[in-house]
Amino acid sequence: MSTFKNKVVVVTGGSEGIGKALVDAFLHAGAKVATCGRNYDKLYQLQSTYPGLPLFIHSTDVSKEADCQNFIDGVIKEFGTIDILINNAGISMRAVFAEAELDTIRKVMDVNFWGTVYCTKFALPYITKNQGTIVGVSSIAGYRGLPGRSGYSASKFAVNGWLESLRTELLDSGTNVMWVCPGFTASNIRNAALNGEGKSQGETPMDEDKMMSAEECAAHILDAITKRKRTLVLTFTGKRAVFMNRFFPAMADKLVRKFFFKNGELVK
């Protein structure tokens, strides 16, 4: 992991789940790490576990442009530059579209898509100067629309398309742009998922114990950054979903419907 020694790595949404696992992994690899989140207490607790190590924390709502600029400005003031940006902060939803308020979908889009755009915009000059890496933590929902997650899928499709455009623009700059689709990974994102009214569900309909751990996911992401990959799709289920949707879309419709619905009701 000497690849990351003294590199400045920015991870949004680093107080729990995949984000926290990434912060842990990069610090252990010798990087200087900056992370943000909305809950300062969780960030402070994270920082307290690494006394003496270069970990910068900042209370940030990535759906707000000014917050993102203040965060990136803080990173530059603390570390002077940025080599790697991982846009990990995200929120999900669980409600069929007919029962979802438009504000719920708007909120998901603001966090997942605009949060990625804002942070990347302000960090871009430093990353391109260093010929570094920009990562978007996306989802299988960015390849295949998932029922009950219409706003989430829309935001991740947007992230994938936007990053692909950015990658093409930066192709001759030496900067790598990559999007990661973890598949079903154990994290807090389903517990924090919004219901139709835009409130946190506080529970998960999935069996988290059978999913890839956040730590394993983080290890795959670090390896992909080292190899400067274009995309990373994780888990067998995730790879199968992408394959089926590409080559057998009508069958994928039926299989996805069967997985998420029972007796006409959304159960997952």
Rank of each mutant, 00 (worst) to 15 (best):
T3H: 14
K7F: 12
V8M: 03
V9F: 12
I18M: 05
K20M: 09
A25H: 10
A34C: 10
A34D: 13
N39V: 09
Y44V: 10
Y44G: 04
Q45F: 04
S48G: 07
S48I: 09
Y50K: 10
G52L: 06
G52E: 00
G52T: 03
L55F: 08
L55H: 10
F56L: 12
F56Y: 15
F56S: 12
I57K: 06
A66S: 12
I72D: 03
G74P: 12
V75C: 08
E78Y: 05
E78C: 12
F79W: 08
G80K: 05
I86R: 09
A89I: 04
A89F: 00
G90E: 06
R94E: 01
A95F: 11
V96P: 12
K107M: 05
V108M: 04
V111H: 01
N112W: 02
F113H: 07
T116K: 05
C119D: 04
T120G: 12
K121V: 07
L124Y: 02
P125W: 02
T133S: 14
I134L: 09
I134K: 02
I134T: 06
G136I: 01
L146W: 06
P147C: 09
S153G: 04
K156Y: 02
A158W: 09
L163K: 03
R167D: 00
R167P: 01
S173E: 11
G174F: 01
T175E: 09
N176Q: 14
V177S: 12
C181I: 05
C181A: 15
P182M: 10
F184Y: 13
S187P: 07
I189V: 11
A192N: 13
K199S: 11
K199W: 03
E203C: 14
E208D: 14
D209S: 15
K210G: 05
K210A: 15
S213A: 09
H220N: 15
A224F: 13
A224D: 13
I225F: 06
K229T: 02
K229A: 05
T231W: 01
T231D: 13
L232W: 07
V233Y: 10
L234M: 15
L234P: 08
T235W: 02
G238A: 04
R240D: 01
A241H: 06
M251Q: 11
A252P: 10
A252K: 04
A252D: 06
R257F: 03
K258A: 14
K258Y: 00
F259E: 09
F259I: 07
N263D: 15
E265W: 07
E265R: 10
L266W: 09
V267N: 02
